[in-house]
Structures are given as C-alpha cells and as structure tokens.
C-alpha cells in the first residue's frame, strides 16, 4: 500500500504531467506530446545527454578497466608476494573515497579546485579555473568521478577472484603464458558476472548523477556539465516548467529501464 503511494502513484503522476503545461500552481493544461517534441529539438537536452555519456565513461567504463587491472595486480602480485595485509591495506586506500556521501566528495573537490585559494592550483603553481572554464569543466568532473568510483570495482573484483580456481592460473603459468595473456584469457572470463554487475550498477549511477553536478558546477559554465537529472531539477524548481521537467525525467527513467533490461538480457544469454 505504502509502496503504491510513494512509488507507483508519483511515477504515474509524473508521466501524466509530462503531457501537460503546468507551473506547479493552478490546473495543468493538456498539451499532448508537445513537451516531447520540444525536448527532441532542444539543444540543451542533447548536450546534457552527451555529457551523461561522458560521465558513463568516467563512472562505469574507466573504473571497470582500471579496477580489473588493479584487482588482478593486487591479487596476483601483491597478495602472493607481499602478503594479504599489504593487499588489503592498498584496497582500503582505493576504497576510501567510496564511503563519502557523493555531495561531500563534491565539497572536498570544490575546495581543492577553487580557482583562487584551491590546493591544486597552489601546489602546481597554476591559475586554471578547473570548474569554471568550459574547456576544462567536464574533464575535471570526470576525473573527480573516477577518483570517487574506483574503489568499488576493485573491491568487487577482488572478492570475485577469491572464488576463481587457482589451478587454471598455475597451469597456464607453467605453459609459459605471459601475465597479460593469463589476465585476458583466464582472469576476465572467471569474473565475468562481477564485471556485469559493476558495469550495470555504475552505468545506472552515472545516468542518475546529480549530487556532484549540483555541488561542483550546477551544470555550468554554460551547459558544459549539464546532465538530464540536473536539467529536470532546473525545470521543476527554478523555472517552474513542471510539464517539461516531467518529460525529461520520464525519458531518463525509460533510458534506465531499457539499459537495465539490455544488460540483464545480455547476461542471461552469456554461457
């Protein structure tokens, strides 16, 4: 019951509002698909979408790739030659950013990257406006998100590697397979389920990303770091374009459901 009231009803209301023009007060006016027509012609929406793809790269793809190499290196080299304590200490260091609320991570970096007194500029003797220059803003936010996300795949992949059969690795080593070949042909196939889970959860997180954008850049400068979630927030609470904001949120929800189903479908098909 409660579930219906808090999730189903609001979602249906949201979809319904997306076919209206409404400022939040008074009666909504039915406008059919007008919001969607406007959305697909809106340059800002497409920009926000392109930025979102960049954030998927920064939050899902890069951390997964680096995480795989790190997890394998920690597990194969460090864990075996320097003992498991060294490996878990390093793993904890990589994981620490993940324990922060994402908004707090934004506050930390907002301070570090501040154009006048920020630590980064002072240390390197630079005067770069990392978050305020349209040429750098998106890349900076991407770098912050890589820092934030990296620990998650490392921890999950290391847990997966513990399950893997060491005999395969030893056999390949005796046959003279190089570390990279073993990594590619043995390690990766063995933890394929974990890779799927990490890619899926991180992609969804990237599609929903809001906190860091709000704290670091508010979508700016211009639209350099605009993302759909912030774009819908802007329409809801600052421009009072509830209908248009709902249309953006509905499209975002659809994309997330489609991406999730596609991932789950692919995972089912894999042997």
């Amino acid at each position: 019951m409660l579930f219906t009231a808090v999730i189903v009803v609001p979602f249906v209301m949201n979809v319904a509002t997306s076919f209206t023009r409404w400022s939040g007060v008074g009666t909504p006016t039915w406008v059919g698909t007008q919001n969607y027509v406007r959305l697909f012609a809106d340059e800002r929406f497409w920009t926000s979408f392109r930025n979102n793809v960049a954030l998927i790269v920064a939050m899902a793809i890069i951390p997964t790739v680096i995480g795989l190499v790190l997890a394998a290196a920690l597990f194969d080299y460090i864990g075996k030659r320097f003992g498991p304590r060294t490996a878990s200490a390093l793993r904890a260091a990589y994981y620490l950013p993940q324990v922060l609320p994402v908004a707090v991570a934004g506050v930390v970096w907002g301070w570090m990257l501040h154009p006048t007194y920020g630590a980064v500029n002072q240390i390197f003797g630079l005067k770069v406006n990392w978050l305020g220059d349209p040429d750098y803003a998106l890349a900076t936010v991407m770098a912050v998100m890589v820092w934030f996300q990296l620990g998650y795949p490392v921890v999950i992949f290391m847990a997966g590697l513990q399950r893997a059969d060491p005999a395969l690795h030893e056999a390949a080593e005796i046959d003279g397979a190089s570390w990279w070949r073993r990594f590619w042909h043995i390690t990766i196939p063995q933890i394929r389920p974990e890779i799927f889970v990490v890619l899926l959860t991180c992609t969804i997180a990237a599609l929903k990303v809001f906190g860091p954008i709000f704290v670091l850049t508010r979508g700016g400068p211009g639209n350099a770091t605009m993302v759909p979630s912030y774009f819908s927030y802007l329409n809801f609470f600052q421009k009072a374009n509830i209908g248009y904001g709902s249309a953006i949120a509905t499209v975002l929800a659809l994309i997330i459901v489609v991406v999730t189903s596609a991932f789950l479908f692919l995972q089912e098909r894999k042997p």
Partner: peptide, 9 residues
C-alpha cells in the same frame, strides 16, 4: 527508477 521521475509528485 531515477528519483527525478518521482520527485515533483
């Protein structure tokens, strides 16, 4: 579901 799609209602 993204919270954005529930937020305004």
């Amino acid at each position: 579901l993204p919270q954005e799609a529930l937020a305004y209602p």
